[in-house]
Amino acid sequence: MGIEVSNVTVRFGGITALSEVSVSLSPGQIVAVIGANGSGKSTLFNSITGLVSVASGSIRIDDDEVIRIPPHRRIAGGLARTFQTPRFDPRITVEKAVLCGFYPVARSGFVRSLLHTPGSAREERTIRRECDGILALFKLDKLRSVPMGELPMGQVRLVEVARSVANKPKYLLLDEPAAGLTRVEQELLSAEIRNLVARGVGVLLVEHNFNLVQQLSEHVVVLDRGSILFTGAPAELAGNRAFVDAYLGTSGH
């Protein structure tokens, strides 16, 4: 069980964005990925979700090799992610953005949606009800009909997280979800992440705020220019010389 990334290498032309990286994530666990900008954190997410192709290595999700499986099927299989730079249509409302996240759990398909069969109508009602629940959970219910383009960045990120949890994923990959959040929003987000984890969801988290990392995760992976510099408990990191140089050294001043 879990996500097992083994010896994955990703190249973009001449750049090696990831080299021989291995990470594992179990259900109900939070693994934090940290590292300076350009160290390959987002590329790691992209290779797990299938948005970039890997040069070598293996990625197993619940013991199935997924390297050859297209991204939409990986998502449908219980994976969800957010983007570091949120991708959203600024004209759609908060509610519609979250509704979009339900796509993998919708079973109706094209023809039944077109014909508005009783089954698809029922499904649409269920989805809308569950969407209300998620909006309430993230305290977004008052903003439901606000266009995404009018939200501050912090709330956009919350909506993105809400959209990603809509399909009840087994594994959730959050790419810098707390950047730009207010203190209150950050607490809301960590509480929600803890809830998900308590329900058995495995969370892979890219986060720059080391305090948040220490609060949330028992396991940290440090990437440096595409390679793994350190894996272990966050507490061990503070005294690790290489980490201080590579990570706090670049963004700690």
Partner: peptide
């Protein structure tokens, strides 16, 4: 429907739709 919303997402940003 979910299908229709996905069609709109794909129009605006295919990669977002994939995700």
């Amino acid at each position: 429907s979910s299908t229709g919303r996905a069609i709109n997402t794909a129009r605006h940003d295919p990669l977002r739709a994939v995700a």
